[in-house]
Design a protein around this nucleic acid. Structure first.
Lengths: 142, 142
DNA sequence: TGAGAATAGTTTCATCTGAAACTATACTGA
DNA sequence: TCAGTATAGTTTCAGATGAAACTATTCTCA
């Protein structure tokens, strides 16, 4: 039986690339803004959609329930986000960026975009469209 | 400023996809063969190249030194791998699959390939070539 | 109704993680 | 040659992780 060539094994390639990218991107905001990866992800979701439950954040980010719960707790302590509870279902929280949290978010977004641009600088527009499509296909399978 | 659209933010998409894929693939071997992800990665490297140092495994897998050291310790305990030390540089180890380890490896490889095939079943040959090329480009940037 | 199932979120616990410090060996240049 | 530096690998420690158990609330249907 032929050995598995790790270099060209798709799950492995995705994993190595994604880890490198996540780590590099985290370096952009971790120290300067004192945020962990889960914390930033929660903020990124809340920057897009407000008044959502922790569960929705889980769905959207594919992060674990526990990870989200703890990231939310830390963001509350830092006053980057606000939490109310739904009137009609008091199990459910409604999370949103605080004014201060939004200011942090707005500082990070351009840095994140800049990183993304640098990352994909070698790709022409057709490549980008293709990459998008391929990732969507894989995502749908996975 | 426009909000960052997480759905189309490349680092985020890569991370979500890679996590899902890694987890699903791990499910294939974790329980049945009692292997963690780092353990399987070390075995996968040794299935390809023998008599290499732990450091080479780090390079090849992009895993942390510590993670590799521990995975190696566990694989030694399970007798899936063998370790000698170089005669000419006794800091450096020479790792290889044991006969039993190779049997495990040979059982896992077809399962891994089958998973990869299922994952990329929606891609035609041109897509696959493109994906390869795009991942390489991103890898080179990251 | 109200008992059992379902859902949102938290806590616990055992394990995993990686930075930093450490051991042991090998290299380098004054 | 040998003091200082570099390298391979391990251990320690402080924090991160996620499965499972838990609390609190809401739904469901007999």
């Amino acid at each position: 039986m032929k050995a598995l060539r790790l270099e060209s094994f798709l799950p492995y390639r995705l994993s190595v690339l994604a880890n490198q990218v996540s780590t590099q991107l985290a370096a952009v905001y971790a120290e300067r803004f004192d945020l962990t990866i889960p914390e930033w992800r929660v903020m990124a979701v809340l920057g897009e959609v407000s008044d959502i439950s922790a569960d929705f954040v889980c769905d959207k980010t594919r992060m674990d329930r526990v990870t989200v719960s703890r990231a939310v707790a830390r963001l509350l302590a830092k006053r980057h986000i606000l939490r109310r509870f739904c009137a009609d279902d008091r199990r459910r929280s409604r999370l949103a960026l605080s004014a201060g949290g939004r200011r942090v978010y707005q500082q990070i977004v351009p840095l994140a975009r800049r990183y993304e641009n640098a990352l994909s600088a070698g790709l022409d527009p057709a490549d980008r469209a293709n990459l998008d499509r391929l990732l969507s296909l894989l995502q749908a399978r996975a």
